[in-house]
């Protein structure tokens, strides 16, 4: 069953005095429960795509659907509801709140969602039960990213959107984070979309969408995804 689909998405914006065409006529669809990797070099438009499907930005033209609902027709209020209940974000630089503990960071998300998961169970699932009272400054990058994942998943969203989740981590930590994302995908049945420039991560995906200069250059199903332990970069 299609969980997410995009139809002829385009996006251009101004940055300072420069006009940027970030997306150019992009269309694709994703099945429920898939682990998807959107692959592309820097500036290929993958983050813009994530922003639009995550309801953080509006396309210049084109449509996005979650199941059969057109997300791009939502007003500001409905977009906020959409982000609140349907989407979980994981960012490259974790972006957890510096003055909240691990547990409080997760609670920050669960407090506003309709059907949240148990906070302590989530922290246990990401292996941070012992570190729940620590502040970000007292945690390693990997631990912070785990908090970020726990925070995103605890909202019990339909889709987990991850923007370069291993980009700021060393190899071993990166692998463990990918393992965690896979676990969320397989055990908790969440659709996970990972955006990365790291081609090796694509081997573990069910679907790989490749982008360049704002366009999709391929959208392929990976029949034999690798296990996380097999990936190397």
């Amino acid at each position: 069953m299609k969980i997410l689909s995009a139809e002829t998405l385009s996006k251009s914006y101004e940055m300072g005095e420069i006009q940027v065409n970030a997306l150019d006529d992009v269309s694709f669809s994703i099945e429920e429960g898939e682990f998807v990797v959107v692959l592309g070099p820097s500036g290929s438009g993958k983050s813009t795509l994530l922003n639009i499907i995550g309801g953080m930005d509006q396309p210049t033209s084109g449509k996005v659907f979650l199941y059969s609902e057109e997300v791009t027709s939502y007003d500001e209020k409905k977009l906020t509801e959409y982000r609140r209940n349907k989407i979980g974000f994981v960012f490259q630089f974790y972006n957890i709140m510096a003055n909240l503990t691990a547990e409080e960071n997760v609670e920050l998300a669960t407090e506003i969602s309709e059907d949240p998961l148990d906070v302590l169970e989530m922290l246990t699932a990401v292996g941070l039960n012992e570190r729940k009272d620590h502040f970000p400054a007292q945690m390693s990058g990997g631990e912070q990213q785990r908090v970020s994942i726990a925070r995103a998943v605890a909202k019990n969203p339909a889709i987990l959107l991850c923007d370069e989740p291993t980009g700021a981590l060393d190899f071993n930590t990166g692998i463990s984070i990918l393992g965690l994302l896979k676990k969320v995908n397989r055990e908790m049945k969440k659709t996970v979309i990972v955006i990365t420039h790291n081609t090796d991560i694509a081997f573990m995906a069910d679907r790989v969408i490749k982008m360049r200069s704002g366009k999709i250059i391929s959208n392929e199903i990976n029949e034999n995804p690798m296990s996380v332990e097999e990936i190397k970069w």
């Binding site: 906020t80 982000r83 974000f89 920050l108 506003i112």
Partner: peptide, 9 residues
């Protein structure tokens, strides 16, 4: 931005 991304208005 993060708070808004999480669903805060």
């Amino acid at each position: 931005g993060i708070l808004q991304a999480m669903g805060y208005t």
